[in-house]
Amino acid sequence: MSRNGPAALVFHTLFVVFMVAPIVVVCWVAFTPEGFLSIPTTNFSLRWFKALANYPEFVHAFAVSLWLGALSSCVALLFAVPAALALSRYQFRGRDALSALFLSPLMIPHVVLGIAFLRFFTSAGIGGTFLALVIAHVVVVFPFALRLTLAAATGMDRSVEMAAISLGADGWTMFRRVTLPAILPGIVSGWMLAFIQSFDDLTMTIFLATPGTETLPVRMFLYIQDNIDPLVTSVSASVIAITMTVLILLDRCYGLDRVLTAKGGDAGR
């Protein structure tokens, strides 16, 4: 890092401390042996992680979040892959409008989406169900799934597809044998990014979740509203650990900056 002067390095250090401080503090406090919020210095204990077992609502919320994230990311990709192929391969009228529509969940505040979904699902008679949550999450994570798939499909050498066709492959065979393997890394990282977005969403989900379908962020938020104690820090620390794992995986197999800046300018929320 020789190209940065000492002043720049001091600035950089302070900046990094600022960025990691709240995350480190949460994880640190989670290991307190005390019954109250404190920063352990000599004694570290797993007491509050073990205590999680006695709070089934957190465990249940965690399960809901996992299922919801996995399911909605898969469903989103089922819609996003053909859409990405359409946008990257074909010229048709209204193509730009279509891509703006598909990316619109990034622009619309999640409060607004939450309200719109609440109103809509209540009128449709499926308010508060897991199905409603899945549909809402599919929409919200769709742009992320789409963007990474789109970047992969656009970056792919089209003459490879033409080669397959010229050798006698039909459209489906070409997709299965040539296109899909080529864009698979984009699809996988799209899935991971979509999963994280779904797993973390609070603002929209809080309008739709009912006691049976509370996700982990919703449960944590409602818990914090009442009181902050070491239990919620151990929940947070677990969530952070899970996200970091996915994040490092994502970075390893695709490069985090590329994932987050994939085509379209603004990144996720």
Binding site: L193, D200, T233
Partner: peptide
């Protein structure tokens, strides 16, 4: 940029 993907509830709790 990693914190971007970490639960906003956990970060704000911090």
């Amino acid at each position: 940029i990693g914190p971007l993907l970490i639960s906003v509830v956990a970060r704000t709790l911090g």
